Amino acid sequence: MKNLIYTTIVSIALCAACAHKEKTQPTPEAQPAAKPAEVTGPLSAQAVMKPAKKQKTKGMVHFSQSGDKIKVEAMLEGLKPGPHGFHIHEKGDCSAPDFTSAGGHFNPGSKPHAGHEAPEKHVGDMGNITADSKGKAKLTLELSGTSIGGTDGILGKAVIVHENADDFKTQPTGNAGGRIACGVIEALK
């Protein structure tokens, strides 16, 4: 009988301790599930590229958001054969004849200029796009460290194609020369 009374008292004490623990420190099962990160804003956008004065470069650059990555697909024509610097610039303004109204490279993190694959680079550094012997160029790449919408997103910025290849070293522009095509990144519905 003493063992039964002792077991009952111990059981009551343990249940009381468990109840107290549940009230002050919920178990992981009792905590609400964390919500997945939400992407705000549009999931796709495009830039219609127009040529600078005395240039022929035109085309389309499409952006599609998937998680924390942006797929970039570019199709251009009217380029001189070879590589051309290809960047997102900070202002969505293609009004100046030489497209200087688009400002510098989009760089909200104040990083150094570098190649697209470098761990430390401008968000807008997309490397070079290379035209074939007929002046046509296609490029597919993935951007990280930004989104289409949001405070530091690419929406409303400009895509610029440069006259020369980006050397990935010269600060802050890669010594890519003049701006030969410009397009403002706009949301797709």
Rank of each mutant, 00 (worst) to 15 (best):
I154C: 05
M60L: 15
I129S: 00
H122Q: 09
K69I: 00
E29G: 06
L139I: 04
I180F: 03
N175I: 03
F99S: 01
G149L: 06
E186V: 15
L139D: 07
N164L: 14
V161F: 08
H113Q: 11
E90L: 14
G82Y: 01
K56V: 04
P112F: 06
A34F: 08
H62L: 11
L139V: 09
Q31M: 13
S147A: 14
R179C: 11
D152E: 15
G127M: 02
A52V: 02
Q31V: 12
C15H: 08
E186A: 14
E142C: 00
L139K: 13
V61T: 07
L141K: 11
S95V: 12
L188T: 15
F86L: 02
G115I: 07
K121Q: 10
H89L: 09
Q55F: 04
A96R: 07
G127V: 06
S66E: 12
K58I: 10
T8N: 06
G127Q: 00
T173R: 11
T130P: 01
N128Q: 07
K121R: 15
K80Q: 13
K91G: 03
P81K: 13
D125R: 02
L139R: 06
V123H: 00
I5S: 12
C94G: 05
K138T: 15
I180D: 03
D132G: 09
K54N: 15
V39P: 00
M49L: 15
Q25T: 15
T173Q: 08
A34W: 00
A34I: 10
A16S: 14
D125W: 01
H116R: 12
R179L: 05
E142P: 00
A52H: 02
G103V: 06
I154R: 04
S95Y: 08
P36G: 09
M126N: 02
L79R: 01
A165I: 06
